[in-house]
């Protein structure tokens, strides 16, 4: 079973795609210097079987496509919510992004204005996680991305990609065409996920404007951004299942 990890110096949430976001483990970069820790590392660990590796990558690509579609639909679902549309069903037994968004309001109503932005409730958590999300997006445009492909724990290829496209790859020698093909695919997946992450920022901010407009917020969309981020993150979780 493949594993997809984003080792994220910003400690941000899992980006669109199959990735699990992990903090930098102490000393994990071996011989590399401390400054390397600032670079986000997208690591794909594939099984030894080529068939299984290809199937896992295909599943990851499908998962990313589904999540991209879910994120793209966020403004529509927010608008539907704002206008009483059908994004929320009657008494849905399970939480949905829409119910969670409104639960933020419920929490604020229940505990009073003084707790706004403080305490450990969902609002405060959303603000904190939104901060990490912004840092994650900032890093994505400030630093190169590193992409590593491992087969059964053995590193077979690495690439460093600047956001303007400059690309340096390091490959294991010899006739290892299969490794290289898998790395190309892993690299494409990571870069597509990075672009999806950036797009999701734009969508969150546009969503924030919708939420703020719904609320007639005098503070504008910025104050609504964490709630909008939480909504988009919930959409991703919904698709991930």
């Amino acid at each position: 079973m493949a594993s997809f990890e984003l080792i994220d110096p910003a400690g941000g949430p899992a980006p669109p795609g199959p990735w699990a976001s992990r903090p930098i483990p102490a000393g994990s970069f071996g011989a590399a210097g401390e400054s390397e820790a600032a670079l986000p590392l997208w690591r794909v660990i594939l099984p030894a079987s080529p068939v299984a590796a290809r199937a896992d990558l295909a599943a990851a690509e499908h998962s990313l496509a589904a999540q991209e579609a879910a994120v793209a639909a966020a403004p529509i679902r927010l608008r539907a919510l704002a206008t009483g549309g059908s994004a929320v069903s009657f008494g849905a037994p399970t939480a949905t992004p829409e119910t969670n968004l409104l639960a933020l309001i419920a929490e604020q109503r229940g505990v009073g204005a003084a707790s706004f932005g403080g305490g450990g409730g969902p609002l405060a958590e959303a603000e904190e996680r939104f901060g990490a999300f912004v840092a994650q997006v900032r890093d994505a445009i400030a630093y190169a991305a590193l992409v590593e492909t491992l087969r059964e724990g053995v590193l077979v290829a690495r690439s460093q990609v600047g956001w303007t496209g400059d690309l340096r790859s390091l490959l294991a020698p010899g006739p290892l065409g299969e490794h290289r093909a898998l790395h190309r695919r892993a690299l494409a997946l990571a870069l597509r996920s990075r672009a999806a992450l950036l797009r999701s920022f734009g969508i969150v901010m546009r969503g924030a404007a919708i939420v703020a407009a719904m609320a007639s917020s005098p503070a504008g969309a910025l104050i609504a951004a964490p709630a909008a981020w939480r909504f988009v993150d919930d959409l991703l979780r919904e698709v991930r299942g």
């Binding site: 704002a82 409104l102 932005g117 007639s216 910025l222």
Partner: peptide
């Protein structure tokens, strides 16, 4: 004309300002 979201952002006074400042700084 909202479904109650307005109160989320209208109430809170100082706390809202503080949150706003923090978000503004981040962004």
């Amino acid at each position: 004309g909202s479904y109650g979201l307005g109160d989320l952002f209208r109430s809170g006074g100082e706390a809202v300002n503080e949150t706003f400042q923090k978000l503004n700084e981040t962004l």
